[in-house]
Design a protein around this nucleic acid. Structure first.
Lengths: 150, 150
DNA sequence: CTGTATCCGCTTTGATACTG
DNA sequence: CAGTATCAAAGCGGATACAG
């Protein structure tokens, strides 16, 4: 898939989007390409929480499980393995009794922290706007139902 | 959930993460909070593609459907409605025959373009690293299977 | 043209119990 | 402690067919 890049920005007067321009033809926004698939992997719920937790430093399995509330052992391990496989985190096993496993970010994983933070920051800054919009939208639909003329 | 913010960054010598520090206590990384739920909504596959398509300007239903290959009418409408409800896009209906509907980003939607672009850029820049890591990881598991001594 | 409605399979996820 | 195994539940998502 390729995007046609003609921009009919007519009455929409918004500021230029340098980053968007830069990646316009990278294909990251094409579902079928590797870039987008990577994007989907890292943009998931647990990944974000795990990466963030590990930016605080290396952690052990139980530490992560406690910090990330409501994650089941299955999901935790599954995501840890995926992240390890993708080279974003490192898994260090100490053959002791009881066993001890330490997880930490690789440099690659660290490089992802900032972009994720940017996204998180956007979310935090705009929760109210979004909630307001939702409320408005829902009220409108409701009044339509009630006031349908005759 | 609150994160304890002691950082035992010991041997991990990575650069400071200003953005992370800023959002450390915002709670965006807590699954149960509004911020994180918003994050999950916008980080999904189709949302990203739709937002991106609309940064090119307003588009009609069919235009979006053609640009975003392999999206079913169901998913397209579903996501358009969600984005409209959240105040990220605007839906303008022209009561003509045949019907005409134009979708465009709201200012709020536009503000999301840049963060998404940053994430996309990261993905594009690191596909090779990740693929390399995956290959390495998979090879290691394989050789372990074969060479298990006696 | 711009959707809506329905069915249905398949993956994802959750809960829980168990093991080295 | 650090997982694995198993089963069931839920929800996405695709493929139509059709309507205003």
């Amino acid at each position: 898939m390729t995007f046609n890049l003609d921009r009919n920005r007519g009455e929409l007067n918004y500021p230029p989007q340098p980053a968007l321009d830069r990646i316009a033809n990278m294909g990251v926004f094409d579902t079928s390409c590797e870039g987008h698939q990577l994007l989907e992997k890292i943009a998931n719920k647990w990944t974000i929480l795990i990466i963030y937790a590990l930016t605080q430093g290396k952690k052990r399995y139980t530490g992560l499980k406690q910090q990330i509330v409501d994650i089941s052992p299955k999901m935790l391990v599954q995501n840890l393995r995926n992240l390890e496989r993708s080279g974003l985190i490192e898994r260090k096993v100490f053959p002791s009794v009881p066993p001890r496993v330490e997880y930490s970010l690789t440099p690659l994983g660290e490089s992802l922290a900032e972009p994720l933070a940017v996204l998180g920051e956007w979310a935090y800054q705009h929760i109210k706007d979004v909630n307001l919009a939702i409320e408005k939208y829902d009220n409108n639909s409701k009044s339509e139902d009630f006031w349908e003329p005759k």
